[in-house]
Nucleic acid binder design. Sequence first.
DNA 1: TTCCAGGGTAAGC
DNA 2: GCTTACCATGGA
Length: 274
Amino acid sequence: MKLAGPIDLAHSLQGGQAFTWHRDGDSFAGRIDGQPVALAQSGHDIAFRGAPKKAVASYLRIEPADAARRERLLRDPTLAPAMRALPGLRLLRQDPWETTVAFLTSANNNVLRIEGIVKALVARFGEAGAFPSPERLARASEAQLRACGLGYRAPFLRASARLVARGDVDLVSLRGAPRDEVRGSLLALPGVGPKVADCIALFSLDVDDAFPVDRWILRAMADTYFEGKERKPREVEAFARERWGHDAGLAQQYLFHAVRLRAGGVGVRRVLSA
DNA sequence: TTCCAGGGTAAGC
DNA sequence: GCTTACCATGGA
């Protein structure tokens, strides 16, 4: 599959928005629409097997709007260095339920542990390696979930799984809806607050102007835009929407990665003073 | 040992 | 409406 723009599978698949891909030599093994898939990259060409081209392109968001989005964000002189340092970082279009579970476990947690918990859930409750359904996780006991490493989040996941299984929250129907509407619906799920809702919206529901504010983003924004002083999440989010509009989500992903990888000069001040 | 992690919840004001 | 303590877990 030839691509118009840059893509970096490693940063996109294993950078904290998806948690079940693993590197297998030169390729990445994971699942799309429940089917085992292998993706490999050589330059701007993506090789794939296990899933239809249409499904892969949808998951990787190979779409015309991407190039224009990158062009607009590159005009931001303070964001451009991060973008040039990590060309090809992409937002994914993941399964909404899997994304909900992953980011519900992300609260007050770190990427490595989230990966471990999600993989434990798949191993313990998934059928033939597929991600477990809401129905299956709703039937799990709190003790079983805690055994997967969820800690105090176990009852939240159980309750949220029950709501989704019953259809009280219809995740797929939220795709493409306005940001505030999506967030409002997701907040009905126990363990899902504003930040987690924005992650679900951005990484699985096509809400491109969502701007999840976590500890990393607070620091990255402080160092890049607020003279080193951290502001409240609400103020940071308002700043992002004013500055980047519907491109805010990709901007967030660049800032998140750049500060974590110490790339593109983002977060240098804090790193030096740490 | 203490700090930290892609925060949320509930209590207190 | 807005702050604050608490929360399981494991790596650094």
